[in-house]
Amino acid sequence: MNVSLKRIQAIFMKDYKEFSRNYAISMVIFLPLILALMYRQTGAESIQSYFLPLNMTFSMVTAYVQSCLIAEEKERNTLRSLMMSPASIADILLGKSLLVFILTGVILAVSAYIVGYAPSQVVPIVLVLAISTVFYLAVGTICGLFTKSVMEASLAVLPIILVFSFGPMALNLTETNVMYKIAQWLPSAQLVILAEHSQQGASVGEIVQPLLLITIWTVVAIVIAVLLFKKRTKDE
């Protein structure tokens, strides 16, 4: 699969201009920061309180903005032109994801600073946050490809926000609870579990397990996004 840096950069710049002009989408990036400020005022210092703004960033920024940018292309009928251009699938998907990836990284860093989260083991946390970002980019791409307009994309992301952002709260329940047994497999919950293990100085094996599960979620989401993109290419 050929990858052209020039084409990726061109798609990135196009998305940047559209994002900066669309205030309805761009203003969303401030919501996790506002939530982080609110949590800072409460004085909560648990891993779950630290990671709620971070998980909200993934769903409300990464998935939401990505889906809206894809849906906006479809709504304007410009995605078809992009698909028919010499750009490969990798060029398009990487170019369409680069802006949101950078935005997510910045907001995650600022949110973590605001709530005062300082991981004892930086490398595994940064790695799992990067993998999680890719997962939510793939989920956002899927939502954008399934919908026909920005409004539809906004509605399609709502279940993602509710389930993945607030799902980890079920970890406060007893292990015998049905909601706990289901929620613990969510990538957002595994992210919290990994952070807790890391903060407690757990062994490599205890950290690798949630990292592996999040990676599996990510690979599956990427495969679905690529297959759906190919299908949309034929449909168009």
Rank of each mutant, 00 (worst) to 15 (best):
T42K: 08
R7L: 15
V61C: 09
I214N: 09
L228Q: 12
V128Y: 10
P168S: 00
G167S: 01
P86V: 13
G167Q: 05
E152P: 01
S97H: 03
S81G: 15
D235P: 04
Q184A: 07
A90Y: 09
S4F: 11
L31H: 03
P210G: 10
F51Q: 06
I8L: 13
I102L: 15
L194M: 12
A225Q: 08
A195G: 01
L93N: 12
A109G: 13
Y117A: 08
L31A: 12
Q41N: 08
I11V: 15
Y136N: 01
F164S: 06
V106E: 14
F146S: 02
E45V: 10
L212C: 02
E236L: 15
E72M: 14
I114P: 02
S149W: 07
L94A: 15
P210Y: 06
T233Y: 12
L79M: 07
G205W: 11
E73V: 08
I70M: 11
F51D: 02
F166T: 06
T133W: 07
A221R: 00
R80S: 13
S67M: 08
W185Q: 02
I161A: 07
G95P: 08
Y39D: 03
A63H: 04
T218V: 04
L31S: 10
T42Q: 09
V139N: 05
V219Q: 10
M60P: 09
Y113S: 11
A90L: 11
V208W: 08
V28P: 00
K17N: 14
